[in-house]
Design a protein around this nucleic acid. Structure first.
Lengths: 208, 208, 208, 208
DNA sequence: GATGAATGAGACTTCATTCAT
DNA sequence: AATGAATGAAGTCTCATTCAT
């Protein structure tokens, strides 16, 4: 019989990850110390090392369990929308609402991760996995729209998905650095306008 | 009376900045050591401190003198293009060709800078200055196109400029982390297609 | 809940202070290195920094806890003597016996402290505190003697106390620099002879 | 024919010593840098090294040429006084007026020197030389007074001279650290009163 | 299982001294 | 002769990780 229940252990683990996320976001991965993290979750450094073997592993786990789950979250929250266009709109909305309102820390973690990814191949792998999954999800939606005759037939679904991601995460990293006059909502509307005029030129005409 | 000519001093200064840029790009600012930099430019650490008072000042100088000059470079290289649309195309081309081909290191420095900007207000200020200048430049081009009756009259020049920047730098940061299947040229074409269909819907129709 | 008892921590703290005192005395504050101190108490530098945040703080603590307690020690060891004159004699004896025999290191620390006091206001404050307390104690003894009709009525207790301190500490600093032919005991006798002839001229006459 | 006259060289040398004295007094010997000194005398560090081979040698020269000349200065300024007692009074006056008014920096240098003397045998030698010469000078005056039947015959001239020096330099070091309520003039009067009552008890009686 | 004191390699920075110009 | 740029050893302090309690 385990002295400490599995749930309790998992709670601890999540508390450590929460603390690490907070600290990483605030000071960046390199400046964050194990003591910072242990202080943020009221756990001794020794206890912390019973859950994660190194500081790097905490980072990696965050990339996998927090950033890496973004695609799944996306799919879950946008699949119920009706037409491909509506699902696409949902995705664009999610980019801004999720990052800006519901989980602003995820955006900050993304930036920390991007930097570490440059010289840490494991972090890089995690980051690329997220990117690939999101791209595929968006790509599928667009492909569905094309197949349904809703979107222009010559659209390159994959590239458009990639561009969408670059814009979203580009906006995110600028937003988390506190760039002045960067309004996520206005940006979202513009993105949608661009997409509509490109994917559905005739429908866009009606708006004129 | 300096025993060493001013040019020589400036060359040394630039050599240090070059070395620092290389090292910062490779390991990030925090992991880069003064010894790394001094080794990269064949100068002793002591000599290095005759040119820059702290490691942080080197970073700041890079932000100002390398990243911060991007707007001026943009203006110089794209102002000769003819119509607003052609100038816009020049800009989008420059984003990819400059970052991807001519000065790939600037893109990497951008990422390092973004991360440091989160907790270093001076770096942040430098980064925001660059962003603002680039946005204004792009915004002016777009406004010119609207005024000339070339672009749709209801376009929000500022927001579109912002979005363009987010996309460009978003693409850049993903590109510098080695994201697989991220082709800057294809991305560029897609960006231009989106812009054309939005800004010049009728012209775009002709392409159908 | 401390794993290490408070006494143990205090012992460590004192061991560090002992080591620092030894090193400061030997090389002076500036030349003493943290590594010297850590080596002298068989503790790693890191451990040392758990007890004192900076090298300067170690010095300051020494000034407060070692030098600063001299007045209290003086009071404790001389208050039991009978008449004011006997107490004064006790004090003069203590200056030489304590510094020269029992705690020679305190005298050396005094010199180190004096030098640092010139450009360190906190050290200065500590030093002046000790001086003031000793002066007041001596002054009170002399005033008592005057009030008791034992000492000449026109004596300036405060100035005499100050002079006594200057002589004692002047002797100390010369003694700790190994000045040849400086005998603390002979010096003490002379000091007492001067004091007696000044404070109690009639009694002194009897000695003729 | 030397390019630079000997006088000019000597002027330079003295300028360096002046600058070094100023800097040593302000920050202490260890914290003073060669650059500090070179800046204080408008000479390049290179030039400075043509006059003194090391930083230590500058210190040593100061001890010899500035501190070490104190005895000669004393002799010169006090020998014209008449009786031994008057010469003694002159000496005590000189201690305070010279240190406090005319050459306050010498007092500060004394303190710096005392500290360095602890671990630098050459500095120590210089300091002890000064001490010995001053003691001998004072001792001779006192011996003269005894021989002249002016001072009590059983006085120990050497010990009294030593005590006088300890008091004077003790007062000096406390004075240079800015000890509050330390008035050199009052101290001087008290010293003289002590000396008179001890050396000339009958004359002192008259003052009652 | 938990604690947090201890370790020690390594970071940034300073500065006495040298030497090419 | 003079300059001051360059050197690099050495100092203070930090922090990921370990392990006795």
């Amino acid at each position: 019989m385990p002295r400490v229940s599995a749930e309790h252990k998992e709670q601890r683990r999540q508390a450590i990850l929460d603390a690490a996320m907070e600290v990483f976001i605030g000071k960046g991965y390199q400046l964050a110390t194990i003591n910072d993290i242990s202080a943020h979750c009221n756990l001794s450094v020794g206890a912390l090392y019973r859950y994660f073997p190194t500081k790097g592993e905490i980072m990696l786990t965050l990339v996998e369990e927090r950033l890496g789950r973004t695609p799944a979250t996306f799919a879950r929250l946008t699949e119920k929308a009706g037409t491909p266009w509506e699902r696409l709109v949902s995705c664009v909305n999610l980019f801004t609402s999720a990052l800006g309102v519901r989980h602003p820390s995820t955006g900050r973690l993304l930036l920390v991760t991007l930097t570490e990814a440059v010289h840490d191949s494991e972090v890089r792998r995690g980051l690329h996995g997220r990117f690939k999954a999101l791209r595929e999800y968006l790509s599928t939606i667009i492909a569905d729209g094309i197949a349904a005759g809703m979107f222009r037939p010559d659209a390159d679904a994959d590239t458009l998905a990639t561009l969408l991601l670059c814009t979203a995460d580009g906006g995110t990293v600028y937003w988390v650095t506190g760039t002045p006059n960067l309004d996520l909502r206005t940006l979202r509307s513009m993105m949608l306008a661009l997409l509509r005029s490109y994917l559905m030129p005739d429908a866009s005409d009606e708006h004129h």
